[in-house]
Design a protein around this nucleic acid. Structure first.
Length: 449
RNA sequence: GCGGAGUUGGUGAAGUGGUUAACACACUGGUUUGUGGCACCAGCAUUCAAGGGUUCGAUUCCCUUACUCCGCCCCA
């Protein structure tokens, strides 16, 4: 048997419906915030990610899917979204557009060669957005608030937003130096991971779980002390705007983000759900003012955010957030003999072209099995075609909810369906339901009212 | 890249070094029911992730590989 590659996932059935729903909500919210959809290539020149994401990040050094194409070009499947968008911004000379800043969003698969675990795949989907061309703290606040609002709109409650600032490039560098100087004399006391981090990514030492309680950690220099006045002031402004918008956040100096390109504001969103896996950061972002210049474009400030879509879905599931998944057909057509089957083919096509969701039996099943199938599909109406009645231009149509049957003229069938199809009232209520349901169904939650 | 636990049919699963791999659900057909939803009858894994080894004999023991899950690193 051929199996799916390690770390990939088939999404179908109810799960696919949930994905489509969440994607749709995202599209709607992004439209309100005036972000435009952008689609960039799945593979790009390897150089883009090396220069854009950073030579020192693990994502680029050992987690990319690299290949040489038949023309001998070095290609990489994108491990994240920002670099591609930045490249597109430069290549299409969007800095010349008279409509600044440029706001984009994407919702696409990314590829990272990692060991899979809960909420982590080799093919992962990220939804993200970028605001390019503004260095105003208001832009930072918008990007953060948008993140919070999307989770809120989707119904996710147990999240925590951590924000921090790395300051400008100079502040960041000074801080990095200070950290190295602080930890270097004590290197022998650090765990083996931290020893490596000291060289590669000293900011990450602060995040270490093993060394967290050690004295050197507590005395480590703080970002805030290495910020120049401008950077400090900037961060204060961001916080002010967030407060005005009523966005809750926590300032957490250990939020440093691994990607090389970040500066100033960085933030992440954590799922705080009981029992959620180790991969609990469901979204992260920050400002990357230097990246576009580094990729050969004009110096352009930018900020963005990315959501791990798979993890987001996992969080929604853990929090038992209700997602409407309506999957019912309007009409199921059954038949017994070949003439009726032929007529079913005709009628199915005709009604579909008139906008109805129509199904019929493709397996020449018994009537009994046909009814069962109609039931399974949650069909609102069922018709058993009958040759004799067809000669009189009539069908008997059964309303599967009321169990009542009526004889209807075929010419009037469309009108009949239009009049009698009541839009989906399927109740999603479960036992733990708290009377928040707006459905008109007479289900448990209303009976108690 | 490192560590741990798994992998039996469409699904949930029981099980054993020895000729027909339990049970349930689902599914298919039939009887009956005014055309399904109930009941009853029948069918439904030559096969236990793949390959190799030990053995007279392995789904059961050993090894390898693949995949899944849970952690670490890293990260969304």
């Amino acid at each position: 048997m051929i199996t799916k590659p390690k770390g990939t996932k088939d999404i179908y059935g109810t799960e696919a419906k949930r994905w489509q729903y969440v994607s749709k909500v995202i599209d709607e919210v992004m439209e309100k915030y005036n972000y435009n959809f952008i689609r960039v290539p799945v593979f790009e020149s390897s150089e883009l990610f090396h220069r854009g994401v950073g030579e020192t990040t693990d994502i680029v050094t050992k987690e990319t899917y690299d290949f040489t194409d038949r023309g001998g070009r070095n290609m990489t499947l994108r491990p994240e979204g920002t670099a591609g968008v930045a490249r597109s911004f430069i290549e299409n000379k969007m800095y010349g557009d008279n409509n600044q800043p440029i706001k984009f969003y994407y919702n696409c698969p990314m590829y990272r060669y990692e060991r899979p675990q809960a909420g982590r795949y080799r093919e992962l989907t990220q939804f993200g957005y970028e605001l390019i061309g503004s260095d105003d703290p208001l832009a930072d606040a918008e990007v953060i608030s948008l993140a919070v609002n999307i989770y809120k709109i989707l119904g996710l409650k147990e999240i925590k937003v951590n924000i921090n600032t790395l300051g400008d490039a100079i502040s960041r560098n000074n801080y990095r130096e200070a950290l190295i100087n602080h930890f270097k004399p004590y290197i022998h006391k650090l765990c083996s991971d931290c020893k490596e981090r000291l060289e590669k990514n000293p900011l990450r030492i602060l995040d270490c779980k093993v060394d967290a309680d050690k004295e050197i950690m507590k005395t480590a220099p703080k970002t805030i002390d290495y910020l120049n006045d401008e950077s400090k002031e900037r961060f204060e402004k961001v916080k002010e705007y967030l407060e005005v918008m009523g966005i809750e956040y926590v300032v957490d100096p250990s939020v440093v983000r691994g990607l090389d390109y970040y500066n100033h504001t960085v933030f992440e969103v954590e799922a705080k759900i009981e029992g959620f896996g180790a991969q609990n950061v469901i979204g992260a972002g920050g400002r990357y003012n230097g990246m576009i210049e580094q990729l050969g474009g004009p110096s352009t400030p930018a900020i963005g955010f990315a959501v791990g879509f798979d993890r987001l879905m996992l969080a929604l599931e853990y929090e038992k957030v209700k997602i409407p998944v309506n999957s019912s057909v309007d009409l199921f057509l059954l038949y017994v003999n070949d003439d009726e089957k032929k007529y079913a083919a005709y009628l199915t096509n005709e009604l579909r072209m008139n906008g109805f969701v129509v199904e019929t039996d493709y397996l020449s099943r018994s009537l009994k099995a046909g009814f069962k199938q109609a039931d399974r599909l949650n069909s609102k109406f069922t018709i058993v075609l009958n040759s004799e009645m067809l000669e009189n231009n009539e069908v008997k149509i059964k309303n599967n909810k009321t169990k009542e049957e009526e004889i209807v003229s075929i010419d009037a069938l469309i009108y009949y369906l239009d009049e009698n199809i009541i839009e989906d009232e399927e109740c999603e209520c479960e036992d733990d339901h708290q009377h928040e349901c707006s459905c008109s169904h007479d289900c448990k939650c209303h009976k108690e009212d």
